[in-house]
């Protein structure tokens, strides 16, 4: 879990490291997009509260946006996935730590390669399935029953989020095979101990 010694190691070089850096840039962009989604959904919910409050006293104020619940749910889903690549890279995604904290370096590396392989397969498949799903929805012209919003739009954002996770997973797999450090706690928010 603790990667305190990583700071003193030289920066890894080569194609694997370049791929990892590219994945990190994409993941960081994803995380910021996720942050905007969270801020956006907070503002949307607040707007609905304010409208409902003032419409009780001012008849010309509508009682709500009408799309608050629906759109804040879309924003939530987007935030869950878009930030997952950065969270993975920061070493914060939860796992059962008993074996991973083993002192046997080789065993840890083999397990890291296994879990990154499984993660790549799952998140890669998710991305492809979501992409096909989005295209199908677009072709059928399906809209939401609440507000007649084309459903392919929120679905495309989720596809993008799954893609960010898949990219980070694949980069992690290749870094693990190359023997490079996998977690970068510096990425993302400062932790509590500082």
């Amino acid at each position: 879990m603790s990667n305190g010694s990583i700071d003193t190691l030289p920066e890894p070089r080569g194609p694997a490291a370049a791929l990892q850096r590219a994945a990190d840039v994409v993941s960081l962009f994803g995380a910021w997009a996720a942050g905007l989604c969270i801020v956006g959904l907070t503002l949307l919910v607040l707007t609905d509260i304010l409208l409902a409050f003032f419409s009780k006293y001012l008849s010309f104020v509508p009682s709500g946006t009408g799309v608050g619940w629906e759109y804040s749910a879309y924003l939530m889903g987007a935030a869950f996935l878009l930030g997952s690549g950065m969270t993975l890279r920061a070493g914060l995604q939860l796992r059962v730590e008993l074996i991973m904290s083993s002192r046997h370096a080789l065993r840890v590396r083999v397990l890291e390669i296994f879990s990154a392989t499984l993660g790549s397969i799952v998140s890669g498949s998710m991305t492809i399935w979501l992409l096909e799903f989005t295209l199908r929805t677009h072709r059928y012209g399906e809209v939401s029953q609440e507000s007649f919003t084309p459903l392919w739009i929120p679905q495309a954002v989720l596809t993008l989020g799954a893609g960010v996770l898949a990219f980070q997973m694949i980069a992690r797999l290749i870094s693990a095979i190359a023997g490079h450090p996998l977690n970068d706690p510096k990425l993302g928010a400062a932790s509590a101990i500082e």
């Binding site: 409902a52 419409s55 008849s59 009682s63 009408g66 029953q145 609440e146 507000s147 007649f148």
Partner: peptide, 11 residues
């Protein structure tokens, strides 16, 4: 009926 906030299930 004017101005009573009422919940409906769909648009």
């Amino acid at each position: 009926f004017e101005g009573i906030p009422v919940r409906g299930a769909d648009k």
